[in-house]
Simulated scan of single mutants.
Amino acid sequence: MIINISGRTDIVNHYSDWMFRRFEEGYAFSRNSLFPNSVRRYELTPDQVDCVIFGSKNFAPVLDRIHTITERFHTYFYYTITAYGRDVEPGVPDIDTSIATLLRLAEIVGAKRIAWRYDPVLLTKKYTVARHLETFESMAKRLAGHVDRCIFSFVEMYKKHEVNFPELVPLREEDKDALARGLGAIAAKYGIPIQTCGPEENYAGYGIETSGCVTLDILGRANGIQFRKLKHRGFREGCHCIESRDLGALNSCPNGCKYCYANKNSQLPLENYRLHDPMSPLLIGRLKPTDRLEAGAQKSFLLPEKQSAHR
């Protein structure tokens, strides 16, 4: 089983004390986002978890303690660093600070365990195609040799963006093609493997791989382990990622990114953040009398002969 920390919220940046406590105590609860009264318990022990994947826009809060997890578990890190400033990502450090943090993280966990996420790629009057390519090259030059790969995707045009992000400019096919061509050329120049995430067009002609961003192949090669051949069901149509168990909660990320799909609006995350209890097994709040707590399925994806070496 793969533990995801987290596709729903930035646990690393805002809830790191809770995260480390959960690993110390060896379990966590996760509330079903579709059926709120359904809560699953997951054991956070090496014999029950094949790999822990982390996704964040700021790993600075965990640098001094992440070794307590990496020394016990197979891991992989997805670090999102984009071209945007606080006008789009108000709760995220600036580019220079983020790159410095990624370089420190690479010293701790190794470049082979870090993917640089340059996504979502979006356009406004300020963030043009030309600006993206200029910023991406500046970043790629500094990150070359310190990351396993680069993953990008184009922004999805959700209805709520009309209210939350009105300055967003719809991407035309020619914009996507120009961006993909440029990103592919720059990544090749600096020796960084690059791929799309999700249901993007095929840009193989620009040296861009079309694959899931969380695959057993990626996790296996990064950690020197072998998984069984399993279908990657993904999280939505067109996604090629392996299934995982997410410990996060929707509407709880204080980063405030205008393009966020996991927050309904800017107010809900602040309200939920106030409900956070670092001592609770749940990220937000505590168990309620009406909740149904059950053990989560934790079937291993490892090859049988590799399981004994891992556990």
Rank of each mutant, 00 (worst) to 15 (best):
residue 78 Y to S: 09
residue 311 R to Y: 14
residue 89 E to S: 07
residue 18 W to D: 04
residue 100 A to N: 11
residue 132 H to A: 00
residue 124 T to I: 10
residue 171 L to S: 11
residue 153 S to P: 04
residue 87 D to W: 05
residue 207 G to H: 02
residue 8 R to N: 14
residue 11 I to S: 12
residue 41 R to P: 07
residue 35 F to V: 14
residue 78 Y to I: 10
residue 256 G to E: 03
residue 260 C to G: 09
residue 102 L to Y: 07
residue 57 K to A: 00
residue 222 A to N: 04
residue 16 S to T: 11
residue 79 Y to F: 13
residue 114 I to G: 11
residue 189 K to R: 11
residue 212 G to W: 01
residue 180 A to H: 01
residue 8 R to I: 07
residue 309 A to K: 13
residue 225 I to H: 08
residue 295 A to S: 04
residue 167 E to V: 12
residue 301 F to K: 15
residue 31 R to P: 07
residue 132 H to G: 03
residue 81 I to W: 00
residue 170 P to N: 08
residue 233 R to Y: 15
residue 293 L to Y: 09
residue 149 R to V: 03
residue 72 R to N: 10
residue 190 Y to A: 08
residue 227 F to L: 06
residue 110 G to L: 04
residue 149 R to Q: 14
residue 290 T to V: 13
residue 253 C to H: 09
residue 231 K to L: 12
residue 265 N to I: 00
residue 84 Y to C: 02
residue 21 R to F: 07
residue 279 M to R: 15
residue 113 R to G: 10
residue 229 K to W: 04
residue 70 T to P: 03
residue 111 A to L: 07
residue 27 Y to M: 01
residue 20 F to E: 01
residue 306 K to S: 10
residue 261 Y to L: 02
residue 85 G to L: 01
residue 161 H to A: 12
residue 113 R to D: 05
residue 278 P to M: 02
residue 62 V to Q: 09
residue 35 F to G: 12
residue 197 C to T: 03
residue 118 Y to I: 00
residue 16 S to A: 10
residue 183 L to K: 02
residue 149 R to Y: 09
residue 290 T to C: 00
residue 156 E to Y: 12
residue 244 S to R: 00
residue 294 E to P: 02
residue 47 D to S: 15
residue 54 F to I: 04
residue 184 G to D: 00
residue 106 A to N: 11
residue 247 L to S: 06
residue 130 A to P: 04
residue 309 A to N: 09
residue 125 K to D: 15
residue 182 G to R: 02
residue 60 A to R: 15
residue 7 G to N: 11
residue 34 L to W: 12
residue 49 V to H: 07
residue 167 E to I: 10
residue 36 P to Q: 02
residue 16 S to C: 06
residue 56 S to I: 09
residue 171 L to E: 03
residue 220 G to Y: 07
residue 113 R to S: 06
